[in-house]
Design a protein around this nucleic acid. Sequence first.
DNA 1: CAGAAATGTAAGCCCTCACTTACGGTAAGT
DNA 2: ACTTACCGTAAGTGAGGGCTTACATTTCTG
Lengths: 107, 107
Amino acid sequence: MAYAEILDALSDPTRRAIVEALRNTPLPVGTLAQQFPISRPAISQHLKVLSDAGLVAADPQGTRRVYRLQPDGLATLREYLDTLWDDALAAYAREAQRQSTKGPFDA
Amino acid sequence: MAYAEILDALSDPTRRAIVEALRNTPLPVGTLAQQFPISRPAISQHLKVLSDAGLVAADPQGTRRVYRLQPDGLATLREYLDTLWDDALAAYAREAQRQSTKGPFDA
DNA sequence: CAGAAATGTAAGCCCTCACTTACGGTAAGT
DNA sequence: ACTTACCGTAAGTGAGGGCTTACATTTCTG
């Protein structure tokens, strides 16, 4: 049930923007914060949430902490969505079947 | 950018529980509400959010509204995660490449 | 060793959002 | 037609979370 943490992390627009910013290249906190209208500590707090969810990871380089995207969190979420997807399709097909067995003039 | 709405919808624990409850079989609002410790109007409000996100749909049957899982929202979210996934893996491989070119004794 | 640079953490404020109660509307039953 | 059942919506309230300022910590540099 770790996907709860991941969905919660990705529900915030700023955190999604951070993920988007790290999509191409890893970045230290300060550089990342410059791209946003909020303070640097706020970015740090968001990064903690993303890190706890397994969506990003930090590589310490001297006094800097270079954050990068981490596939782990995304993998967990994808797996969950896949099972949900299967059930949704099955329910969908079941409903279609139920409708058709009633005959075309029952609707 | 509709995945924002979907992520926001799935970020709430109660809404996730509703989705789980509809995973096997469609249910009317009242029956659904009985499975939760909150009021029926609260469930209705959650269903509206899920419906707007394309995650569920309602089939009116008399005075009842039978809600069921809808694949549309899940599909949108899955597509978004797939592109993110690709970029994450690419960045991962790029980083690994960068590390290896430095030689095994630079770490 | 002193100072600066980069970041994480604590405390507090404010606003969003989930929940409740109350109400209105539609369909079925008698 | 009246009543009952089922549901969505409006208004109001309370708590969680995102943001800020201030402070502590670690590492590099002169």
